[in-house]
Write a protein that binds this DNA or RNA. Structure first.
Length: 581
RNA sequence: GCGCCUGUAGCUCAGUUGGAUAGAGCAGGAGCCUUCUAAGCUCUUGGUCGGGGGUUCGAGUCCCUCCAGGCGCACCA
């Protein structure tokens, strides 16, 4: 089994349409989930004109022509809708079949795709903050979903590990030897936290002390020309920062590893070649002393083409060049079929320019798709960009601490029977899960409001609600532990709550395919929330363990499939599913 | 000036690519724990889908036009 019930029902309706009017063969049967039945089709309304018949009459003919074991009722309703009801044994058989498969019957529709996902991309020597959180969480979810569907995913962490700011920082560390920043020398504080602080101090000195500014500039030259002592300190800074990022990634349970890091410095020795190649092909031109690619599509305030600056008038390279080199590398060497940039929406113009230049250079074959998976700004409860009261950006670590802290209070209040160690663990998993779910559950492109209280309320569409639903199922399954696998009896009754839950579970694969297509993780969240609600209705209406056979076995199988689906769905979001909470 | 994004209940958000009476959660009101975890459930109050035109059997969804907000547009990344 690979296709969903909806797909199969749609095929049956399409056949019915073709029988009712052969001229309509191949048209979309427009089958959708329905509140009035299991599915509905509006095809008769859409096709009435083409068929030259009133909608209701066409609907009657299609209804009469639909022949399938899947449905036990095809009713015409209203102006010409078809209301489709799935036969009860079909629902039970689908539950049994999905339950029997380790992959839950999800088709691997992305097999053969080679996808590069660029996400997280923190800056070396700077704290991770909420902006990085969005990129990291969304990118990680997409990596998990696409991998699950069979794609070969190449994760790329484009670290900000190169640039003039390191000259200043390294010079400062050289002149202030008492500054400590290596993890071994610090008490509690992380290396990036220390480096971030030292960087700000260096910046102040740079602005105030002309001599220091001059020495910093020389240090940049030393760095770029590969001066061994300077490079050694730089490497150390990068290593310390990466270790600190590693700790946060581990806490967030993010897939990124050291091997996925390919920062700006990685492309450093390709930049000259990029400029040379584009200049030779005539795509790049000289302008005001700089080498640029002038956009054919985008104009600036003065009406002139917006430039992509490949080489600044001082001879240096900026991130335009780096990103172009990066894209070329991903297509030529990583052999990308699809390149996803999980980056802030404000970079939209920049990516359009980079892609345009790459296309003009002939670096992007027509079948390679480049997508800017953009996301909105994170706002505080006051509706303004999320910052501390002092106006600083909020560090990721402090934010996670706050979420876990509140989750701890909720756990203590809701389930006092958990021991201290278990309560701590649940607080960590639900607190982190709450933050991640909040990032993933609203549509990506909009700005979103960061509100810790709402996240850890665990009511409504939150991570905690899903984890709780899973924990309740786990409690039932624990009591049935050791029993032989339940046998599903397709001829047994089908309670409306069982039907709704069975149908919801059947749509898991379609949902994942939808996420892969739209690159919108919130669709998976909405699906899991709907499924968890369907389970809760079932839980209220249908006792499992005390039910007589064959009902008990059927319900147990439904519980197992629901648990597996929620567990896997949460795993694809990168969220844990504790057995107790 | 041009471009991109956003505008749905008091608040935070969905809305399956044009389908039937626009849905959740929170907040407000009324209930449900000798019964598999009440982090739950049931009922209830609340909408000119920013405004106005248009397209058609049918528009929150598509087109046009205003209004409001956010972001971006040459040497920072």
């Amino acid at each position: 089994m690979t296709s969903s019930l909806l797909t199969e029902v749609a095929a049956a309706v399409a056949d019915g349409i073709a029988v009712a009017d052969p001229a309509l063969t191949g048209t979309d049967p427009l089958v959708r989930p329905s509140e009035r039945a299991d599915f509905q089709s509006g095809a008769a309304l859409a096709l009435a004109r083409r068929a030259g018949r009133p909608p209701a009459e066409l609907a009657d003919r299609v209804a009469a022509a639909v022949r399938t074991e899947l449905l036990d009722e095809v009713r015409v309703s209203g102006p010409g809708f078809l209301e489709l009801t799935v036969a009860a044994p079909v629902v039970w058989r689908r539950v049994a079949a999905r339950r029997a498969r380790a992959d839950l019957g999800v088709p691997r529709g992305e097999t053969g795709q080679r996808v590069i996902i660029d996400y997280s991309a923190p800056n070396i020597a700077k704290e991770l903050h909420v902006g990085h959180l969005r990129s990291t969480i969304i990118g990680d979810c997409l990596a998990r979903v696409l991998t699950r569907l069979g794609a070969h995913v190449v994760r790329q962490n484009h670290l900000g590990d190169w640039g003039t700011q390191f000259g200043m920082l390294i010079q400062y560390l050289d002149e202030v030897p008492e500054a400590v920043w290596r993890h071994g020398d610090l008490a509690g504080e992380s290396s990036v936290s220390a480096l971030d602080r030292l960087y700000r101090a260096a910046r102040e000195r740079f602005d105030a002390d002309a001599g220091f500014a001059e020495r910093s500039r020389s240090r940049v030259v030393a760095l770029q020309s590969g001066d061994p002592a300077t490079i050694a300190v730089w490497r150390d800074i990068v290593a310390e920062s990466e270790a600190a990022f590693r700790a946060l990634y581990d806490r967030l349970d993010v897939l990124l590893t050291r091997a996925d890091s390919a920062g700006e410095s990685f492309y450093n020795d390709r930049l000259a070649g990029v400029v040379e190649e584009l200049t030779r092909s005539g795509v790049a031109v000289e302008s005001d002393g700089a080498v640029v690619v002038l956009s054919a599509a985008e104009t600036g305030p003065d009406g002139a083409p917006v430039p992509l600056i490949l080489r600044k008038s001082d001879g240096g390279y900026g991130y335009d060049t780096t990103d172009l080199a990066t894209l070329r590398y991903r297509v030529r060497e990583l052999r990308a079929g699809r390149v996803l940039y999980v980056v802030d929406a404000r970079q939209a113009l920049h990516f359009r320019l980079v892609v345009e230049a790459a296309r003009r250079a002939g670096w992007l074959p027509g079948d390679v798709e480049v997508v800017h998976v953009s996301f909105g700004t994170v706002l505080g409860p006051d509706g303004r960009p999320f910052r501390t009261r002092a106006g600083d950006t909020v560090t990721l670590g402090s934010l996670l601490d706050a979420a876990v802290e509140r989750a701890r209070a909720v756990v203590a209040a809701k389930n006092p029977s958990l021991g201290p160690a278990a309560a701590d663990r649940v607080a960590e998993l639900t607190g982190i899960g709450a933050v991640k779910y909040a990032e993933l559950s609203t549509s990506r492109t909009k700005d979103y409001t960061f509100d810790v209280d709402r996240m850890v309320s665990f009511a409504g569409n939150t991570g905690g609600y899903l984890q709780y639903a899973h924990a309740r199922i786990a409690a039932i399954l624990r009591r049935a532990e050791g029993e032989p696998d339940p046998v599903v009896e397709p001829a047994a009754d089908l309670h409306p709550a069982e039907r709704a839950l069975g149908l919801a579970l059947d749509a898991f694969g379609d949902t994942l395919a939808d996420v892969a297509r739209t690159l919108e993780p919130h669709r998976l969240c909405t699906y899991l929330y709907d499924t968890a609600r369907a389970f809760t209705d079932f839980y209220e209406a249908c006792p499992v363990l005390t039910a007589p056979e064959p009902r008990r076995g059927n319900r147990l199988a439904l519980c197992r499939l629901t648990a597996a689906t929620l567990r896997e769905g949460l795993a694809l979001l990168g969220i844990a599913a504790p057995e107790r909470m």
